[in-house]
Design a protein around this nucleic acid. Structure first.
Length: 606
RNA sequence: GUGCCCGUAGCUCAAUCGGAUAGAGCACCAGCCUUCUAAGCUGGGGGUUACAGGUUCGAUUCCUGUCGGGCACGCCA
């Protein structure tokens, strides 16, 4: 049995009420299983249902006859007829018919269609919860940006995608842990510390030219000010000692001048070494201040974006507790390492990588890859059944080596999933907004959030498949107009609440009202959308594709707006009024829940 | 050069593990507020799914090749 079909998808996880009652799609599926036992008892075909795109093809369809035609050596039409004849009678089914080359279309009775309204109102926020995950533990690691500066709009996409994906997985029955990997151990952090220190020194009149490969943002100067307030001039050192042994900054005459870049990197390395020896413990002070300030800023930024983590995992901790050295030893013990040119190499090419990789440099320092192996081993040892890394698409070449390492350590690398998130281009007034990380002129997530708002930003980010480049239209995201998809969906929710408020009754009673008076085509369309919500959740979880949920919500909102325009809900006839209120109240439940999964508010008035 | 991703309406994008007549929004055209929010609705035109083959009952989807775009190819992280 392959994963993810209606048989599991529609098994509502609702242990509180009627735990043994099968969902409606499940019951339809059971009918087909029965028929299969009669018509083709030995066929190795998974019995699944699909939802026809086309109105007029019923509520459910089966392609069983088409799939069986070959093995049974009979025409599909004939098999379809036999299957239909073998279907047990059901009060849910109005009619079943063969269509096209051999599709079997199932039409529900009106009562069966209406039942979803009551189901939704009773389930509330539990509606749409599916058991795809069966409570299995999954970890989603995302953002994990170097804490060396503010998050930019690219990180924002990773944040929005990762957070939505984690929510969707949780809704689909996984036990989800959200984690942020803090790269607090590497050279980048040293560069940030030195950058801060140089700004600090400048505040005391130092004339040291600021290196082009340092961090140049205003936030660095701000941290230098903090440093001056907390440490006075105790960290001041003379220019000559700071610059001692540095080759000096090479002018970068053109982009990609390898020689000049290399010299500047050396310059920086010497500055770092000097800082460490000149400051002693004071260096740690600078380093820690920079790290904590940036992490706090990052956390605050993400929280305001509706993104919260269960755990912030420090890379440094893997060095401190010996994990990195241990994992390298394990690889060595397994015979997966060799020495060459003074460095230690991991034979990743033996596990599908295109070349071998260094884990310990000639100077004895472990590479980032080494700590990353330790980190992934740690994840697997924590007992997650599945580990999801959300990475920027530029890291795709990194996947094979991590999987190779996991395999070499005896883990099942197939349990590591790495959805890639493509780049973001901002558009303003129809033109691409230039972004340069070089000079600190990039657009930050905070600026984006301030400009377009959290809701629009979150929604726009997941409006594209994650592996697709995203053109982010700032003007559209800001516009309070019908062009803006986020308002379109929110407006549908607000409209419903407006009606409920005007009615003024107790919404909790709507779950019990008779629904027979609901009989217009638009009402049945809305019921179909309600029925499709668990399916949308499951598809989004299965494919790591929260954008499917965003599209679903747009469609549901469209159906609601259409209905709203064509139908007066608050009519004088009481039973009709209550039934219509129940229907739109159910729609509001789903809109609210879906938006919440995407980190978007569902306002009750706009 | 090698590897991965992508190519769908004028634009931005969907398309349920291969399904029925490839769908939305924007833009364009024509309509709808004395009625629960017009941030809305109704209708219309618009396609050789980059191109050429292959696999099969059936291909936007899978395979091969060509063209075009992006990314990655470090003892950086």
């Amino acid at each position: 049995m392959r994963r993810g079909h209606y048989n599991v998808a529609f098994n509502q996880t609702d242990p509180m009420t009627e735990p043994t009652l099968q969902s409606l799609p499940e019951r339809i599926l059971a009918l087909f299983r029965d028929a299969m036992r009669t018509v083709a008892p030995h066929a190795a075909v998974a019995v699944v249902l699909e939802r026809p795109r086309q109105a007029g093809h019923g509520e459910f369809a089966s392609t069983l006859a088409l799939q069986l035609a070959k093995s049974l050596q009979r025409p599909p039409g004939e098999i379809a007829a036999a299957l239909i004849k073998a279907l047990p009678p059901s009060p849910l089914v109005e009619k079943v018919e063969v269509a096209g080359p051999g599709f079997i279309n199932v039409f529900l009775t009106p009562a069966a269609k209406r039942s979803v309204v009551t189901e939704v109102l009773r389930a509330g926020s539990r509606w749409g919860a599916v058991s795809l995950g069966h409570g299995r533990r999954v970890q989603v690691e995302f953002v994990s940006s170097n804490p060396t500066g503010p998050l930019h709009v690219g990180h924002g996409r990773g944040a929005a995608f990762g957070a939505s994906l984690a929510n969707v997985l949780a809704k689909a029955g996984y036990e989800v842990q959200r984690e942020y990997y803090v790269n607090d151990a590497g050279r980048q952090m040293d560069i940030l510390a030195v950058s801060t220190w140089l700004r600090y020194l400048a505040g005391f009149g130092s004339k040291i030219p600021f290196p082009p490969n340092g961090y140049q943002g205003d936030y660095v100067t701000a941290m230098a000010d903090t440093l001056r307030k907390t440490c006075g001039h105790s960290l001041f050192r003379a220019d000559e000692s700071v610059l001692d042994g540095t080759p000096g900054i090479a002018p970068l005459l053109r982009e990609g001048d390898k020689e000049a870049e290399a010299r500047n990197e050396t310059h920086m390395d010497v500055l770092i070494a000097n800082a460490k020896s000149l400051l002693g413990d004071g260096y740690k002070t600078v380093h820690q201040l920079a790290l904590h300030e940036q992490l706090a800023d990052c956390r605050e930024d993400l929280e305001a974006f509706g993104v919260v983590f269960d755990r912030w995992f420090s890379e440094q901790s893997l060095y401190d507790d010996g994990s990195v050295a241990r994992v390298v030893d394990r690889l060595a013990a397994g015979g997966h390492l060799y020495d060459q040119d003074g460095a230690r190499w991991f034979r990743s090419s033996a596990f599908g990588d295109e070349k071998d990789r260094v884990v310990q440099r000639e100077n004895g320092i472990f590479t980032y890859f080494a700590s990353d192996i330790a980190y992934h081993a740690n994840k697997f040892e924590r007992g997650f059944e599945r580990v999801v890394d959300v990475w920027g698409a530029d890291h795709h070449g990194y996947i094979p080596r991590v999987k190779a390492a996991l395999t070499a350590l005896g883990f099942d690398a197939g349990r590591l999933h790495v959805p890639l998130v493509q780049f973001v281009s901002l558009y303003r007034h129809g033109e691409k907004a230039q972004m340069s990380t070089r000079k600190g002129q990039f657009v930050t997530l905070r600026e984006l959030r301030t400009e377009v708002g959290r809701d629009a930003a979150r929604f726009f980010y997941v409006l594209r498949k994650s592996d697709q480049h995203l053109d982010f239209d700032l003007d559209l995201a800001k516009s309070e107009s019908n062009d803006n998809p986020v308002y379109y969906v929110q407006y549908a929710h607000a409209r419903i609440h407006s009606v409920l408020q005007k009615w003024g009754g107790d919404a909790a009673l709507l779950a019990g009202v008779p629904l027979d008076v609901l009989d217009s085509p638009q009402e049945f369309v809305l019921m179909q959308w309600l029925r499709a919500y668990p399916e949308a959740v499951e598809a989004a979880a299965r494919d790591y594709a929260p954008h499917q949920l965003a599209f679903y919500l747009k469609d549901l909102a469209a159906a609601l707006h259409s209905y709203y325009n064509a139908t007066q809900v608050l009519v004088s006839e009481e039973p009709r009024k209550l039934a219509r209120l129940a229907l739109i109240a159910a729609v509001a439940v789903v809109l609210r829940d879906g938006l919440q999964l995407l980190g978007v508010h569902a306002p009750e008035s706009m």
